[in-house]
Design a protein around this nucleic acid. Structure first.
Lengths: 202, 202
DNA sequence: TTTTATTTAATACAACTGTATTATTTTATT
DNA sequence: AATAAAATAATACAGTTGTATTAAATAAAA
């Protein structure tokens, strides 16, 4: 009898509006009214989908991680040469296209937000960390890693490097555009591996 | 005739109080009242030193960069073996001691804040970037870099790695404590250089 | 001690915040 | 067309925000 709207769909579009607001004004500018306006909804309508602001922020945060995990799953499933795939996985963790920018930057802001909320960050539940671990396992499997490489240190190093790349891409997008990020990633892989990655196609 | 207080000193202590508030509650919790309370000052007193909140935040941000630059200057001047000094410079860019934590984390939060303010980040005026460039020049001078190393890519990579290390140390301090950070740094230097850094003393 | 510029405290105000309540509109079913 | 559940809009309220204004307190110099 009622009007019909897919709740999950509306909630996601609200969450995406929240990302945009957060990226433009920071957490301090992410009021429910601003988000409602960005989502083209009235305050009451927004409140119908999210009882409290905390609930909205929590959902918005979860959605980023979920989207990242989905993206990783998709890229891992692609049918391409191993080395190309590895580069693709890593590039997909960065704002290497305008479409990815929102997702990657929101992920970073929420990560910092964790600190201020006093929550502890569980890397083992972080889709980025899991993806990096998969990449490293893949390198081991393919016997690409240098013989004297320390798997654990390489994993931590790559994880941190990816975070740093994402952060710097966010702060100075003009300097760290797609090609530059790709070059750094390939350079890094080459320094860790015994085989050259070269300028893998895509 | 008046009461005497060193203006700059008071302003710095207010700025430091702002850091603490920002790290605990995020930018969204950094109200002038909260900062005044943290600084043990009345609202009027705080306003006497900073006419507006923007002014306070700007000063607080500048102070972080100034402190970092001073710290870098100090470490570079230390009299120690070249390799040890390089490790020390890098470690000083990370929360490798409780005393540095506040400064490093505030620096990171302000860096992200730059994005939300829509300001453009000038790496050439970033004391961290300058320090990294100095480190790299030093490595070249000492002829420590591997022959096939790309100086520019190595610089960007190290810069991003340091940011990523700082970020992760902030989010999961239990995993990235001093020793771990040092091991990663040395591991990275070893992978870029033809001579081993080993476990340099400090 | 008196004076006087500096420093601090107290209070006020309008704008914005999150949340709650209520009324209205919408639309698939009967 | 009538109905009723779902969705939206409008308004209200108390608390917090940044800023401004005013009065009070402080302490070095006269």
């Amino acid at each position: 009898m009622p009007k019909l709207t897919n709740h999950e769909e509306v909630k996601q579009s609200i969450a995406e509006a929240a990302w945009r607001v957060i990226l433009q004004y920071g957490m301090e500018g992410a009021s429910v009214r601003t988000i409602a306006k960005e989502a083209d909804l009235s305050l009451g309508a927004l409140r119908y989908y999210f009882k409290t602001q905390d609930e909205l922020v929590a959902y918005s945060r979860e959605l980023v991680y979920k989207r990242t995990a989905e993206r990783m799953g998709r890229v891992f499933k692609l049918d391409m040469p191993p080395k190309d795939k590895i580069v693709q996985v890593l590039l997909n963790l960065l704002p290497s296209s305008e479409e990815k920018r929102l997702e990657v930057e929101a992920r970073l802001v929420f990560k910092v937000y964790t600190r201020h909320k006093g929550e502890k960050f569980d890397a083992l539940q972080d889709s980025v960390y899991l993806a990096i671990k998969e990449v490293m396992s893949y390198l081991v499997m393919l016997n690409l890693l240098k013989k004297d490489a320390d798997l654990h240190l390489e994993t931590e190093r790559l994880y941190c490097l990816m975070d740093g790349l994402a952060l710097d891409a966010m702060i100075r997008p003009e300097l760290l555009e797609a090609n530059r990020m790709k070059r750094i990633i390939i350079y890094h892989l080459n320094s860790s591996c015994s085989e050259k990655f070269g300028n893998v196609g895509w």
